[in-house]
Every structure is written in structure tokens, then in C-alpha cells.
Amino acid sequence: MSPVLLSVSGVAKSFRMHLRGGVELPVVQGVAFEVAAGECVVLGGPSGVGKSSILRMVYGNYGIDRGIILVHDRDSGAMRDLGAGDPRLVLDLRRSSIAYVSQFLRAVPRVSALDVVAEPMLAAGLGREPAREAARGLLRRLNLPAALHDLPPATFSGGEKQRVNIARGFATGHPVLLLDEPTASLDAENREVVVAMIGEKLAAGTAILGIFHDDVVRERVATRLVDVSHFSARQAA
């Protein structure tokens, strides 16, 4: 049996709407699932049910009201509770253990696409030139024209930005990878590239948690589906 690299149990999240008199809006409750090495677990359910919120909680972008989010720490080999909200632990786990491809690239202005992709490899300890060469290879594989590699992605098209985003997320050997609709802005050729890259990550033992609204892609990469509707606090209210 493959080891569990991500474990979520008893997680609840709500948002306080300060512009509406501090009313509390529940999102999810009782979220519980595990992702083992070599699995691609897909979060399913209708729009607005909390799928992207769960990914952001697992990555530490959103704090949680209660529950436990355990992530395999590649450095120590232990399962660490990212859900406890320790900012240093969140940053350490992002550096070593958990990568995230969001729906939108938020790149620092004036930083080239090549350096955006190389940055997580540099943070993980790879030298500058090997990191840039690996970044260049990923961008070439994703069919981003070489003329764009040294330009900031701010002026790129949506599909070009997403390819930079994907290259950055896939650049390291982090044991856990989060994917939020990675193929949504891509053409058919580049969707095939990403499907192949996901397959390679799974074969290498990466635990993937993702959202895929493209039915064809989802069917090809998912090993298991978790229906987030079961955790919807709004439906339960």
C-alpha cells in the first residue's frame, strides 16, 4: 500500500463578511480525505461548493476554523500539521513538500518567465544555471515560444500565463501537488502535454489533489473522486 502524503480530517471553514455587519458565511465542514503517493484525487461537485477553497486551505492560503491538515514533510519524513496556521511551517512546506498550480499566475512585475519558473527550484537548493536550464526545458515542452522566455508574463495571453504557471508548479519534486483547473486556458495540444506531465508525476509517486472541469482530462488523470457536496456547510445549513 502506498504511503499517505496528504491527510485532511474534520476541517471546517467560514468567512466573516465585514462589509455586511460581520455576518459569518459557512463554506465547508467535516472535510475528510487522504491522498496517497501515486494518486490523483479529484475534487468534484457543482460550482461554488468549496472546491477551490479546499485547495487554498491545503496550501495554507486560507486559515481553517478547525480540523487537521497533515502534509508529508520531505525533509523530516514526518507528517506536519499545516492547518495549525504556523506561517513558518507553511513556508517551509511550500519550499520542500507542497506545490500549487492556481487558476491564475500572479507573477512579480518585471521578472522574466524563465525566472518565475526557476524560483521554486532555487528555493529548493538548485543552482541558478541548472534551475534556469530546467525552467527553459519545461517552457519549451509546454510550447511557450523562446522569444517569450526572457520577458515578464504580465503581458502574455491567458494560455501563455497558464503555461508558465504549470511549468513553475511542475518544476520541483515536491511530494504533494495541488492543481486548480490547470488545463482551463489551454488548447488541445498543450492539454495533452499537461496530461502526460501529470502521468509522469504519478508514476514518480507524487500525491496530486486537483480540480478539473474538463471532463475528458478528468477521466484520464483521476484515480479517485471526492464529492465536495458532502462537505458543503451551506447545504447543511
Score class of each variant (00 low, 15 high):
230 H>Y: 12
40 C>V: 12
127 G>E: 03
25 L>R: 15
43 L>K: 04
190 N>H: 11
155 T>K: 05
43 L>M: 05
236 A>Y: 06
39 E>Q: 13
171 A>G: 07
95 R>G: 03
120 P>H: 03
109 P>D: 13
155 T>L: 14
86 D>F: 03
35 V>F: 07
230 H>G: 14
220 R>S: 07
99 A>C: 11
185 S>R: 05
218 R>M: 12
198 I>K: 01
50 G>V: 02
174 H>V: 04
67 G>N: 09
94 R>N: 06
210 G>E: 04
99 A>Y: 08
219 E>V: 04
53 S>L: 10
202 L>Y: 12
186 L>H: 04
79 M>A: 14
22 G>I: 10
171 A>M: 08
48 G>Q: 07
122 L>T: 06
64 I>Q: 08
22 G>M: 08
220 R>Y: 03
100 Y>A: 01
21 G>V: 09
214 D>H: 02
233 A>Q: 05
128 R>T: 13
177 L>F: 06
155 T>H: 11
23 V>T: 15
25 L>P: 03
177 L>V: 12
67 G>I: 05
199 G>V: 03
101 V>F: 02
210 G>L: 03
150 D>K: 04
185 S>Q: 13
175 P>H: 01
152 P>C: 13
20 R>M: 15
92 D>C: 07
166 I>Y: 09
60 G>I: 03
156 F>E: 02
142 L>W: 06
234 R>F: 11
72 H>N: 08
47 S>L: 03
69 I>F: 07
176 V>L: 02
37 A>Y: 04
24 E>A: 12
44 G>M: 10
158 G>I: 08
145 P>H: 07
15 F>M: 05
121 M>I: 08
68 I>A: 07
125 G>L: 04
33 F>Y: 10
23 V>F: 14
28 V>C: 09
89 L>C: 04
37 A>C: 08
34 E>S: 14
115 D>L: 07
235 Q>V: 10
28 V>P: 00
3 P>A: 12
219 E>T: 06
11 V>A: 07
38 G>L: 11
6 L>A: 02
98 I>P: 01
151 L>Y: 11
164 V>M: 03
137 G>I: 15
204 A>M: 12
51 K>N: 00
236 A>V: 06
194 V>K: 02
44 G>H: 01
39 E>H: 09
116 V>G: 01
